[in-house]
Design a binder for these strands. Structure first.
Lengths: 184, 184
DNA sequence: AGGCAATGTTGGCAATGTCAACTTCGCGAC
DNA sequence: GTCGCGAAGTTGACATTGCCAACATTGCCT
């Protein structure tokens, strides 16, 4: 009984999500380039070819990872708040999951997972507000995304940082810019 | 003496820069992940291990590539102009050399080349203006960088694009935002 | 009970990054 | 001049990786 759906795995309980979990771990630990399918399989204690029953290729695994990233990013900033608060959520996500964030925007997402990924990205985008005029949305989004990316890469030099940690710096910049953009 | 390259000599004239040229080509053609040291060597018509006389590792080659990218980016926007013009140069660079731009900000630049890379990035940063207050610089830079990154990844949906091509869109957004930020 | 398709396994292949050992060449000291 | 030494290039090898093919297992459906 407990017949959920016909597609429940048996030898493993749910290898697909196990693989995704392990992969997410490895992603943040070793970076996207170092992530190997075989190592994922090893840590999940299955043979090196088992993942191919759930993902057609390595890229498809990565795409699934990225898609879940977009969902989580969208969710983490769904609570309405001004540009400052929602922007901070965006920055926190990037700094909290550096490799994932980079993967999401790496443009290396070919293959079948691309569409589900696109829709996930679309949802996330929506959280930037749909009532405001289009160009203002894009302006805010660009700004927040750029801030996150620069902080992530450690591109902000000490002169500009002036002793502030990432969180404080982000809040300051966001505040100043939000008022300027009139998107308090 | 100073002889021309009559035959395939054992010692090349300047293999290092030849390798960099070939690598830059492959980078834009196949993307950073697909770039292999061995293929670079093949196209330069040397053995698969010759590159190791000039670069300690693949990462070091990539770092050199990224460093030259920062120099070119800095140069391409050195001509002073408002945020709009210099921002457009930034965006054009990103869209003109997508793989290079991504590599530059991929954070995958470990190893020995990292310092020369850092200084090149520093120079580029300077072109954002040093007279303006620190936070304003960071704000502008974040905005421009984010815009470039989003356009690069095709993350701007049709609703926001409203039929405009990349160049026009970038100019519009930059103009609106520049006036708002008071950094005409 | 028995078939069957989904799931997982073993084995293999070509390609890659990198190490080690050998060869060839240019150049300066004698 | 020649000699040798170190830089630049070469061949060979090894472990690892992504992926394909063939085979084995397992539990649901009839």
């Amino acid at each position: 009984m407990l017949a959920m759906s016909t597609s429940r795995p048996y030898h493993r309980d749910d290898l697909r999500s196990q693989l995704l979990d392990v992969a997410a771990e490895l992603l943040e630990q070793d970076g996207a380039n170092a992530l190997s399918l075989r190592e994922v399989a090893r840590r999940a204690e299955v043979s090196h070819n088992a993942p191919y029953r759930h993902f057609a290729s390595k890229d498809e695994l990565l795409a699934a990872l990225a898609a879940s990233g977009f969902e989580r990013l969208g969710a983490s900033r769904s609570t309405d708040g001004g540009l400052v608060e929602s922007g901070l959520a965006y920055v926190r996500f990037a700094l909290g999951h550096p490799a994932l964030f980079r993967l999401m925007f790496s443009g290396a997402l070919t293959g079948a997972g691309a569409d589900s990924l696109a829709s996930a990205a679309e949802l996330m985008r929506g959280s930037f507000g749909d009532d405001t005029p289009g160009d203002a949305v894009l302006s805010s989004w660009s700004f927040v995304h750029g801030l996150a990316a620069l902080l992530l890469d450690g591109q902000v030099p000490e002169e500009l940082r002036a002793g502030r940690d990432d969180e404080t710096l982000a809040r300051d910049i966001l505040t100043v810019t939000a008022t300027a953009l009139g998107a308090g």
